[in-house]
Computed example of a mutant assay.
Amino acid sequence: MGEKKPVAPALKTALDFGPLLVFFAAFFLLKDHPVTLWGQSYGGFVLATAIFVPVLIAAMVALRVLTGRLAPMQIATLVLVVVFGGLSIWFNDPRFFKMKPTLIYLLFATLLGFGLLRGKPWLQLVMDGAIPMQPAGWAILTKRLVAFFLFLAIANEVIWRNFSDTVWVNFKTFGLPVLLMAFFAAQAPLFSRYAPEDEKDS
């Protein structure tokens, strides 16, 4: 595993969220302007996906070079984006790409749940020490995050199957990140309660 290197927070944020914003912008610019290639018409969603996939790959490569490593969740997300984004482009079918968040969240919930059953602090390893906390706190956070990922998977399925492309793109671009940030903000009492003893005493 490569040694983690410090990187400017603004640059890391841009690389983390920039590709998603590129997808959002491309979709709204192209949604009313289908393009015909090799006798087949491609709508804005598939065209935006075709732009998003290489942009995300480039961002992940940049993160790998700058930080010296990628988190397991970043690698899993990249693989699923390439696979399901590629299927959407190849078959000219947005449904594959819309299913991708469901599979990502189900995968994360399954892996974290399996680690919890084995008594392994996989969440702590994945978060790479970003949150100092006692083992009991990590166990509680893992249980909550498993339930939250299952909720996000169900929410994604409900939205993409019942609403328009525009609604799903807004949900994917803004709804999911806001829900994730709100979830971790709501865990502040947990982080405080299970902070390492030396930090409590300081």
Rank of each mutant, 00 (worst) to 15 (best):
M1W: 12
E3D: 10
K5A: 11
K5F: 13
P6I: 05
V7G: 04
A8C: 05
A8Q: 11
P9S: 06
A10K: 11
L15N: 05
F17I: 10
G18H: 09
L20H: 05
L20C: 02
L20K: 02
L21N: 04
F24L: 14
F24S: 07
A26E: 03
F28P: 04
F28D: 05
K31H: 13
P34L: 05
P34G: 06
P34W: 06
V35M: 12
T36R: 02
T36G: 00
W38N: 11
W38D: 08
W38E: 10
G39A: 08
Q40R: 15
Y42V: 01
Y42W: 07
G44S: 11
T49I: 09
A50C: 02
I51G: 04
I51P: 04
I51C: 14
F52R: 03
F52G: 05
F52C: 08
P54I: 06
A58P: 05
A59T: 09
A59M: 10
M60V: 09
M60R: 15
A62Y: 07
A62T: 13
L63A: 05
L63W: 03
R64K: 12
R64V: 00
R64I: 00
L66C: 08
G68L: 10
G68S: 10
L70F: 10
A71I: 03
M73W: 13
Q74P: 03
I75F: 07
T77A: 14
L87G: 03
I89A: 03
I89M: 04
D93G: 06
D93N: 15
F96E: 03
F97R: 01
M99D: 01
M99L: 12
K100Y: 10
K100E: 13
K100H: 05
T102M: 11
L103S: 06
Y105T: 08
L107D: 06
F108V: 14
T110E: 11
L111F: 10
L111V: 15
L111K: 04
F114W: 13
L116P: 08
L117F: 14
L117Q: 13
G119I: 11
K120Q: 15
K120C: 05
L123K: 09
L125W: 14
L125K: 14
V126M: 12
M127K: 07
M127G: 01
P132D: 01
M133P: 02
Q134N: 09
G137D: 00
W138L: 05
W138F: 12
A139Q: 15
A139S: 15
K143C: 11
L152E: 14
A153N: 10
A153S: 13
I154D: 06
I159A: 07
W160N: 03
N162R: 13
N162A: 10
F163C: 08
V167E: 10
V167L: 13
W168F: 15
W168A: 03
W168R: 02
W168T: 03
V169F: 09
N170I: 11
F171C: 08
T173D: 00
F174Q: 06
L176K: 01
V178W: 06
V178D: 03
M181D: 00
A182W: 03
A182K: 02
A182M: 08
F183Q: 02
A186I: 02
A186W: 12
A188V: 07
P189G: 05
P196V: 00
K200H: 07
